[in-house]
Amino acid sequence: MARTPGELAGARPGPAFEITVDGRAVSALPGQTVAAALWAAGVLTWRTTRGGGRPRGVFCGIGQCFDCLVTVNGVANRRACLVAVGPGDEVRTQEGEGRGELAV
């Protein structure tokens, strides 16, 4: 019986690359979404809510709930479950609306 999803699907991913999550180096695989890369690294949350400041991450997994909003390379409000990671991406926890991170 397979012990990991990768083994089950017979995955032979392309070479891993590095991204940073709040400044910390994390390894990611080509094709993964930001959310998948973070789950694989054991990170479940990357946003805090506007009101209560509570941690959030993936909920619906298909782009419908917007709980997974995150700041990627300085752009806030990206849906981590949809956006693909690229080498060197800087992922930052998004606080509240994430407006402070926006360029405008």
Binding site: A9, Q32, A35, W39, F59, C60, G61
Partner: peptide, 23 residues
């Protein structure tokens, strides 16, 4: 239900099928 680690059932399925990851 807003605690980290609580995810949609279909969402877990989608993350697994698409990203080969588990919650």
């Amino acid at each position: 239900w807003t605690l980290p680690g609580v995810v949609g059932a279909g969402g877990a399925q989608a993350m697994l099928k698409g990203g080969l990851v588990l919650p």
